[in-house]
Amino acid sequence: MRGEFKMRDIVSGILLTAFSAVMYWRATQIADPGYDLLGPGFFPKFAVALMGILSATLLGVAVLKQVRQAASAERAGPVNWSLPADFIRQSLIVLLLGAYVSILIAGWANFELASVLFVLSAGAVLAPLRAKPLIILGITTALAVFVVSYTFRNILFVNLP
């Protein structure tokens, strides 16, 4: 467990340090027309430099702890790289939400159709594979999408796609 936490810190440390480096490079390219003393680049540079220092510290501390742990043979065991069912389910929901948002933005379907498809498919991923929950899911989806659509379109005058 401890090893897993350090591995997370190492991975996040690397990602954030790299992100800070890219952002700092971009911050140095912000043009300064000289309208104010500090200019538009000062605060971004300060923020991303601070993030870089903190991320590098996180990475350094995690690596140091990992090395110490390895040296004292206190390994918590190999990191489990297998994909549990929960993780797969979570990833599927992320993908479905991404697809839902993309369909709405691209205008490939209207709000009602996209929402019915999204709620049904995401619900099916999470629902137990039995007839009753699936029937409840179907009915609730139709009702909920109708109520939301009617309320936002006709009462709140929201311009839904």
Partner: peptide, 12 residues
């Protein structure tokens, strides 16, 4: 299985 998709739709 109802709450998660419906809340995500409401958020959208």
């Amino acid at each position: 299985y109802l709450l998660v998709p419906l809340v995500l739709m409401l958020c959208t």
